[in-house]
Write a protein that binds this DNA or RNA. Structure first.
Lengths: 225, 225
DNA sequence: GCCGACCGCAAGGATTCCGTAAAGATCCCG
DNA sequence: CGGGATCTTTACGGAATCCTTGCGGTCGGC
């Protein structure tokens, strides 16, 4: 199920969006201002974000940049202002689309579909199979080849998922921290050491000599199969 | 350089777009109707497509579906019609954005930037291949042609990366030092000697007779393939 | 042939980084 | 409100990396 985060300070509009999106089987989360929005993105990892400009606490473009600093989730901007400079600023800050109020709900939903449609093409197969375990990203399920299911905590899963989605590529410590713990984390590298060790204990045939979750000293980690 | 294909039957608009896009360093191709547009997409492989609805020979949505059948190139729709049903149909047919005429050129350009920005993350993979090894800058991965992965330290990577990004060109010692160690370094040329030697030991088939990492005495180094 | 400038190479100490275990804090659910 | 699971924090031994130094070799000018 696709999840959407709506950031808006207009309670009526928020309610209208929640009703319409829920009716289309979206999972909806909401936030009332920019600060709450940014932490909600970090916490919920939504598949798309709809953000109103003119929030009480932050400039719209700053909200967008705050998200773009560490996430590439699609962002659709809502705004009452239809001056061109406004649109250009929001789009160049990293927004994917810009809809002017008043807007038609059908159009917004179509633009939301367009924005979310682009993602799965780039990510690829959601099932990863190795000699020792089988990883289903969509079902959030891990099984050893022996058949035994592996139980992962939410944090362990997010970490593993981030690495698996970048299979073969090196993922920097900063990127891992921000993807899993949120944008304000960038020095807590010991979190990574602890959780990587836990994942290795659960997945690697010989945890002290990792074969899949590789350390690149001074840089980050790599999922290699 | 980013290339754009414009499909439109309005000669004036075509000319205006060509001028504005060329001025921003886009490579521009044009087509006057849907059929010509489809074959132009196949022939030119543009990085983005701008298509007008209301072409003389085809329905707009059919043009979009014709492209989407085999390509995921970003499509921006231009249209004089701003009925909601029209927008929904185009977007659901596979368009990435929908701009209503009359439109501001700055807005269109911003939307074009937004549409093309999403691509390079998935495709633009800078991979350098030689007879002896294969270098993937994005994944930070080096493999010898034998298949054996090569393990590089962070400093070794930065050095190799700066040389590789200037492939064929001479890179001065000063530039290397400042790029890898920081702007305040400019006399520590012995760092370079040490790390170049380590890279050669890991990459060159005969480290004492370098073939790829060449010394230019008194000047700097050069990556040559 | 001598000399200086420059480069390659190896080795060792200092420093940073990583793996691991374990204890305290927090959250969640019944 | 209690208990279990999860998350955070700490500490330390060991490993990897970085910086430094010294020596020997090569090349070109004189």
């Amino acid at each position: 199920m696709t999840s959407v985060l709506v950031i808006d300070d207009d309670a009526d509009l928020l309610r209208a969006l929640r009703i319409n999106l829920s009716a289309r089987d979206y999972r909806v989360a909401t936030a009332g201002d920019g600060g709450a929005g940014l932490s909600a993105v970090a916490r919920e990892h939504p598949d798309a974000v709809i953000v109103d400009l003119g929030l009480p606490d932050m400039e719209g473009a700053d909200v967008i940049r705050g998200v773009r600093g560490w996430s590439s989730v699609p962002i659709i901007v809502l705004s009452a202002r239809d001056q061109e400079a406004q649109k250009v600023e929001a789009l160049d800050a990293g927004a994917d689309d810009y809809v002017t109020k008043p807007f038609g709900m059908d159009e917004l939903l179509a633009r939301l579909r367009a924005a979310t449609r682009r993602i799965p093409a780039s990510t690829g197969a959601p099932v990863i199979e190795t000699a020792d375990f089988r990883l289903d990203l969509q079902a959030k399920l891990v099984r050893l080849t022996s058949g035994a299911p592996v139980r992962l905590t939410p944090t362990e899963w997010q970490l593993l998922e981030t690495l698996a989605r970048n299979r073969g590529r090196l993922v920097s410590r900063l990127q891992l921290l921000q993807q899993v713990w949120g944008p304000e984390y960038h020095t807590e590298t010991h979190y990574l050491r602890v959780y990587i060790a836990q994942l290795r204990r659960k997945l690697e045939p010989d945890p002290s000599r990792p074969r899949y979750l590789l350390t690149e000293p001074g840089m980050g980690y790599r999922f290699s199969d």
